[in-house]
Amino acid sequence: MTAPLVSLQNLSVQFCGNRKASALNAVNIELGAGEVLGLLGESGSGKSVTLRTLLRLHPERSTKIQGKIEVDGHDVLALKGRALDLYRGGTVSMVFQEPGLAFDPVYTIGQQITEAIRAHGAVGEAAARAQALHMLERVQIPQARRRFDAYPHELSGGMRQRAMIALALACQPKLLLADEPTTALDATVQIQVLLLLRELQRETGMSVIFVTHDIGAAVEVADRIAVMYAGRIVEQATVGDIVRTPRHPYTVGLLAATVGAEHRGQPLQAVPGAPPDLAALPPGCSFAPRCAHASERCRREVPPLESKGGHAVACWHPAQPVAEAA
């Protein structure tokens, strides 16, 4: 493979407000062109921070970023002014969880998409409008011509999320960041949006980083899954490997805690405790306080993310694949 489209090297993000919080700790991610990566984790695990850092959306004054981000040859952390504007939305764009908040309520959907297209290229008003309308049709909004002139509040949740995707894809980005795009939607609408994302990805060949806390949603769209915990990636592998032979105790626990029909009538295997405070991370493995296999070494040293045959895991005592095969 040639140089990856996205590469995060040793990325650390610290928020320094009243309290210091280490949201990301030495994260490494590589993503090839046309690949779909699912970032899986609970709240506070750093998945959304990763996406926002990729777009440089954090306030510069109170955020300390270390490491390196490269996307499509750009050194993202060094971008300034007009180059940053073009990068946001042009090379990389984002779909947010709450489409109701991400749109401007006082402009119509069509105006907002048209504006985005014109901001990124020398396109005339009429051509941009035609392109915007075409985008609305591509995300399968029924009666796109009528919806073009609708305000965000006039659309239902699922329709708004489709319009959000149309806006994000309007400038043909090479990388789409999706931050829990289906969490706020109903089950029957969620599956429609997931299928749409998969189809658009296949058509355009863009790369996607898909953030979710729902393993099911990640399985539906992603090629590879990276599991995050307390600002670190603890396991990374293909979807099949994660679901069938998880090796990190946290991933094992997460899968065991996913409720299914087979658990009826018996207690669930819950992971005890709660995620750690990001302001005071334990010195060793951040999962050690909740882990049944934790040893002295786990409490002292942070385990590195070691890859073997495409399956990377950061644990001193990973579960053996053979034992987990059942």
Partner: peptide, 25 residues
Amino acid sequence: RALLSAVPSMDPDRRTESSPLAGDP
């Protein structure tokens, strides 16, 4: 039946191929 089949599958080899319902409620 549509509601039940709209649940994402947990098996990467058997992904959902078509959505059971169109449109919003």
